[in-house]
Design a protein around this nucleic acid. Structure first.
Lengths: 341, 341
DNA sequence: TTGTAAGCGTTATCAA
DNA sequence: TTGATAACGCTTACAA
């Protein structure tokens, strides 16, 4: 009796023996049932079930120079925004043969480049990367990836391959214009991290205020520190110390907005009367806050879902008609910016 | 010239040829440099660099029946608690040869069991699973895994292998006792999801109130729905509709606590005078709230870090002295439970 | 310390 | 439609 290194797991040869066919026929029956006669297919199916056969992914990958791994690179694990995207990805990968390999670039383009290299060396079935701001070498790697690539969360005119996202600049513009329309005149900006997408939201803010002839760069308060509720509190405190007459703020993230709300409560500033507050992304807590907070709802789960859809279609040979999808966003106006005048 | 399926990547044979040795020597030099003479090692290192050689993980896995994959199974991607654990894991895996394979069980024991099967079929280097409440078959799979297994987030006396966590019951007990000591007498419980760890926190709550002779089951408000800020608002509303004289609440999650705080503001209930509020986990926002919210700080990042430490030690043959680590927790008393009497 | 030979479990290739 | 054979790139077992 042959000694097995694999701990007794049945191999394709065992299935073949039991079904009375050759290994390669089993292989074909598994991958493309249509290419095997119905009778053999039945016998093989029976043998697979009887033996509890599960294909060895590594052998498969080695022989075919292909894997079922979808590499996903995101900049943060703690940011709720990406948690939702990940849910969209994992949920829609669950009943597929694919597996997700997750990489955390921690908002570092260099780290992202390194992860790209690691992932690519495993010949992934596809790659999903957050953002459009890869390094030059990162972009070159993606171009040479030889597999479907989906850039998510943002939009540009030069996708590496496919793209699902929305315009952050337009989002920032929309919410800022809303503040202007609501009657606010001295509108500040609170920004953390200042990654490329945050920068584009800031651009939208700036454009909207320039159009309204209300732009004052001194009302922009930013920090490279990562976004958090306590940071929102601190940034608003800073801003008010410098520019006490500020009457509204666009917070580039919802947690900043919540922190700013708490700071207003502490400072006995009435929201929305003394201070209008708007956030970005519309996390679940915005609607539950008191007063409820205005925000820009971004379809994060859907971005994850559609990215997987595009990947699966591509891999199935049906390249999606649309390779650049704008999922848009929606302004959710709530009490925090509803000034009575 | 030989045709290559692998797209021109150099193989171990290329390195061997260039270094003037045999493949197996290169293989050894890569895995255990000490077993190769210094001179050959230098030549091999040079060749590896010159050719930009990267070992093929699949070939390696196939030949050795081993991988560098650490499987991680957690119940939620959106829960901030697990995001922190994941950071602890990813950060400490980053400069190791290991790769994380993440599975989301969505709080379903059946799904967890399925993931266990999938992961195990890949012969992972180690497995990290959240919780101690696997199904019977899940536990059997873990016992037969043939690799280090770390159960995290909770503690029990029967670890499958290793364990890092803390006692949820003790945490629930501690915070409830604090509410009693602070002078509250009609203390409610707000609970979402009601997974096993939540149940144990509820047990701690119950035990503490029974000891103080203040237990009233009608003050327990739970739902299978998943935890969120808006749910905290709704649960408190429910509780107050039924038991209007409730003077404090232990919220089994911080987001519930924040939601409850907003509800108090809406209902013009003074915190902590009319209503004491305590949460669990001590997410960052607790300290920034107004008033700051009492919570039980749990060392989530550290759990992730130590789980990886244990795995790496085990795999290096140095089985950790302690295979069951209690990382404890810490009560953070803040204004939300500091009643002046 | 180094090397040879023989797989690991699957799929590509070519032939029947 | 089916099959024989030779990879895929690496490691184990054994030998020198």
């Amino acid at each position: 009796m042959r000694k097995r290194r694999n701990g007794g797991r049945p191999t394709i040869a065992d299935v073949a023996a039991r079904a009375g066919v050759s290994s390669i026929t089993v292989s074909r029956a598994l991958r493309d049932p249509a290419r095997v006669s119905e009778e053999l297919r039945r016998q093989i199916d029976e043998a697979v079930r009887a033996l509890d056969y599960v294909p060895d992914q590594h052998a498969r990958a080695l022989a075919s120079a292909r894997t079922n791994i979808i590499g996903v690179i995101i900049p943060s694990l703690t940011n709720n925004v990406f948690a939702d995207v990940l849910r969209g990805i994992y949920d829609n990968v669950a009943e597929s043969p694919f597996q997700v390999q997750l990489g955390n670039s921690r908002y570092s383009p260099i780290e992202e480049e390194r992860l790209l290299g690691t992932f690519l060396s495993q010949r992934p079935a596809a790659l999903i990367v957050a953002g459009i701001d890869q390094t030059e070498r990162g972009r070159a790697l993606l171009n040479a990836a030889g597999c479907p690539v989906v850039q998510i969360m943002d939009l540009s005119d030069e996708p590496v391959d496919m793209m699902v996202g929305f315009s952050h600049k337009a989002g920032g513009h929309l919410v800022t214009s809303h503040l202007v329309a609501a009657g606010y005149r001295r509108i500040g900006f609170l920004g953390a991290r200042m990654d490329p997408r945050t920068q584009r939201r800031l651009e939208g803010y700036r454009a909207a205020l320039v159009e309204a002839d209300l732009y004052d760069p001194r009302r922009i308060t930013t920090t490279p520190a990562s976004s958090s509720v306590s940071l929102g509190r601190d940034l608003l405190r800073d801003l008010l110390a410098r520019m006490p007459d500020t009457d509204a703020i666009f917070c580039n993230n919802d947690d900043l907005a919540v922190g700013a709300l708490f700071e207003c409560q502490r400072a006995a500033l009435a929201v929305p009367a003394d201070m209008g507050i708007a956030g970005f992304n519309d996390l679940e807590m915005m609607e539950a806050a008191y007063p409820p907070l205005t925000s820009v709802r971004t379809p994060r789960y859907e971005i994850g879902r559609r990215a997987i859809e595009m990947v699966r279609a591509s891999l199935a040979g049906q390249r999606p008609a649309q390779t650049r999808i704008d999922v848009g966003f929606e302004l959710k106006v709530r009490a925090s910016t509803m000034r009575g005048d």
